[in-house]
Design a protein around this nucleic acid. Structure first.
Lengths: 91, 91
DNA sequence: CTGTATCCTAGATGATACTG
DNA sequence: CAGTATCATCTAGGATACAG
């Protein structure tokens, strides 16, 4: 829980299960997250080796995030959480 | 994540997967948790219907906690987290 | 477009002492 | 044994403005 126990980390990781995403796209998939928390969250995930951050030296800037192997190993848990969240609605 | 997204909730629920436990026993299974957080955590879990709290009118007091059906539905996620935590050591 | 820097508040968590 | 109450602290999180 020290690695993924925050309000946003599971969400960020979950949205990357289907593949890498550009910074802006990923952020848009997470309604309500502030710019600050987004950056902070991905930075910590990167530091913990759960995802990788690739910067393209172009203009305008382009940054892509994708899961690392370690991050992918969380797939079962993430999908489990998602499934639970869906099925649990209303119970 | 609003339901289980705290430092202790997943741990409490996880230790109840094998069956109900007395308050003291359950608390001992969670090293580092303060008395206050333990009570607060189980209270919230009870309020959210993830576990039930049964008080035996005896002396000394005896209280048992066990998962509700809703709580049991989290088994996949909890075991997944546990498994991940174990396998992830050192990676 | 992406990321950083501040300021600020609410809530989470701890330590301790106390009650039935 | 189980739980409550209080005080103190730390950090997550949000709003906003700015920078490369």
């Amino acid at each position: 829980m020290n690695l993924i126990g925050t309000k946003w980390k599971p969400l960020v990781l979950f949205h990357l299960l289907e593949g890498g995403l550009r910074s802006g796209v990923l952020q848009k998939k997470i309604p309500g997250i502030s710019n600050k928390m987004f950056t902070q969250t991905v930075r910590e995930l990167e530091k913990d080796g759960l995802l990788s951050r690739k910067v393209y030296p172009v203009v305008p800037p382009k940054v892509e995030y994708k899961l690392s192997k370690r991050g992918e190993s969380l797939e079962v848990v993430l999908r489990g959480l998602d499934k639970w969240g869906l099925e649990d609605v209303g119970s």
